[in-house]
């Protein structure tokens, strides 16, 4: 388990990295290394040159504003988890990050790297899609922003050009009267989810459900978000089991659970049903709690 020979470069500035990447052939960008390095070591992948961007100071920043959370390409999962203001602005981020592998992997792995790895069994690509995140990519040719539909074009495949580096991600703040929840079922704690679900539920001014969107992990080829509003919009108080069952079936009609050595396709389908119900209910409860809190203390709402 030793990689084949490859070149290594550690640029000190983004400009240097962009030039190097544009000039290189068969190069890869490395930050957290939690996917690429094992692939290289098992010789399942090889590169001519590894461009290590960990020395680029500007990529390590986290900026939290009322609008949302912006973080650079070398920000670790654990950095986001440890940041005091992230949870207040977008609680989905820590809710999902707790399910990303184990502490040691979160200490090295980067959230931007995870998103552009575009693995539909990773939590953060789905969160990126669910929250309508925006990815900034740069090259010597310029800068552009991508949302999930343009970014994820196939299994483990993005629309980034060969000379483009993902530099930062912006995840918008949770809107007022909205709530979130994330849950997943894995064979072991920290494993890839058999199925994972994140949901964002919005309420109208009267406390009835106005919107429900859910993002799914491990049951589709690309990170998939399903609008579950149809069976749920208008509900107040306890959501009925029937409505949640309908939401689960609706979700399944947009997903393609597949069998692997850990679970059959119909077991995954069952988990989609069960988790959809659990997560939507939890996100709804969260929305109600947040609404009550902000109404109770309007002057403190999202200071």
């Amino acid at each position: 388990m030793k990689p084949a020979p490859f070149g290594y470069r550690r640029p000190g500035s983004l400009a240097e990295a962009l030039t190097a990447y544009a000039d290189a052939s068969d190069a890869k960008i490395g930050a957290g290394g939690q996917s690429l390095i094992p692939l290289l070591s098992m010789r399942l992948a090889s590169v001519a040159e590894l461009i290590d961007i960990n020395g680029i100071e500007e990529l390590s920043r986290i900026t939290v504003s009322e609008d949302g959370v912006r973080f650079g390409a070398t920000v670790r999962h654990s950095d986001l988890l440890a940041h005091e203001q992230v949870a207040a602005v977008q609680p989905m981020i820590p809710a999902a990050l707790h399910h990303v592998a184990h502490a040691t992997i979160r200490n090295r792995g980067t959230t931007v790297g995870s998103i552009v790895h575009a693995d539909a069994s990773g939590e953060m690509p789905t969160v990126f899609a669910l929250l309508d995140g925006r990815l900034t990519v740069q090259s010597v040719r310029g800068t552009r922003e991508l949302a999930a539909p343009e970014l994820f074009i196939g299994p483990l495949e993005t629309s980034l050009a060969a000379d483009e580096i993902a530099t930062e991600v912006f995840l918008p703040a949770l809107a007022p009267r909205h709530g979130v929840a994330f849950d997943e079922i894995a064979r072991r704690h920290g494993d890839y989810a058999l199925v994972g679900v994140g949901a964002v539920v919005g309420l109208d001014a009267d406390g009835a459900i106005a919107s429900v969107r859910a993002g799914y992990v491990s049951v589709s080829e690309v990170p998939t978000v399903v609008d579950l509003g149809e069976p749920l919009v208008g509900h107040r108080g306890e959501i009925t089991d029937d409505a949640l069952r309908a939401a689960g079936e609706l979700a399944l009609s947009h997903l393609e659970p597949e069998a692997d050595i850990h679970a059959t396709a119909h077991y995954r389908a069952q988990l989609v049903r069960v988790l959809t119900g659990r997560v939507v209910r939890a996100a709804y409860d969260d929305a109600v709690a947040r609404s009550n809190r902000s109404e109770g203390t309007p002057s403190n709402a999202r200071s």
Binding site: I185, L194, H262, A263, T264, H266, Y267, Q270
Partner: peptide, 10 residues
């Protein structure tokens, strides 16, 4: 596994 137990139930 849970998947197998689920199958046994069905």
């Amino acid at each position: 596994s849970p998947s197998q137990l689920f199958d046994l139930r069905l």
